[in-house]
Amino acid sequence: MLKFVGRRVLWLIPVMLGAIFIVFAINAIDPGDPVSALLGGSYTQEQYDDKKIELGLDKPFIVRYAGYVKDIVTDGDFGTSYTTKRPVSTELVERFGVTFKVAVISILIAIVLGLPFGIISAVKQYSIADNAVTIISLVFASMPGFWLALMLMLAFALNIKIFPASGIEGWKSWVLPCLASGLSFIATITRMTRSSMLDVVRQDYIRTARAKGLDERTVIVKHGVRNALIPIITTIGFQFGILVSGSVIVETIFSLPGLGTLMMTAINNRDYPVIEGCVIIMAALICVINLLVDLVYGFVDPQIMEQMKGSKKARRARHKTMGAHAL
């Protein structure tokens, strides 16, 4: 188990190095020139060269990349913002909370509502409740987040004035952003739960459980849901990535001071250190969530746990037999 976790954590290092490299490379090919953008309209060649050296843009790409990674690893230094002149790490820390809060609340709402809807829908397949849940979740799953955000704002902030349309003023300001990012997420979890449960309730062991006289509740919750969880957890992990990257849109609409708005402002100003910082933090967050998802598998499914615990030799043997089956 520890070995598995260790290997899984170590794997994060090349992934993050690669992610930083990609973002760095994308910014390097940007045809826009931050030096002239910062200096404004008129400047001499000398001023231009000085500024370029000050920003460190005169050095070759690989040197800049290595220095950047070194600074992050040794002092958590993501460079200095071109526009605000403040350390990027301070800005990231300030903004992170808002994005994280919206993401976590949305996920919790989605799990609390999505799971029961999906289970009911699967257990009472083809009933009126099932059809209603299926159609409604399909509608919400098809709604683009930014449009849903606009419609919610139109309905509940402008026509019926219950919630504020922008900014943060108490708990009410969180309702619309969380709904906007959470509703389609509820729909996705409902749909996944339904199809996963439908797979499970057709299995023999469910029939066995019923045959030995267990009450329906135990059959569904203990034997059904537990076995249906793996694909649902995968979906949750996957959706978390969509949610975090979607913050760029939702935060812009509701003008929340999170990572998303920070990144959008940075993109408009060609503020590379900030863009890189935002993407790296979001990617890191998603990597950690995926790691947690992988570990949760182990707790949900004893078979996987066994595999994690097993020695390398045992695992190899198992792979071999599995290979033989495949042939």
Binding site: V23, I26, G241, S245
Partner: peptide
């Protein structure tokens, strides 16, 4: 490892 939409935004 980088979410698709985020990558698309950067590119």
């Amino acid at each position: 490892a980088i979410p698709g939409f985020l990558l698309a935004v950067c590119v």
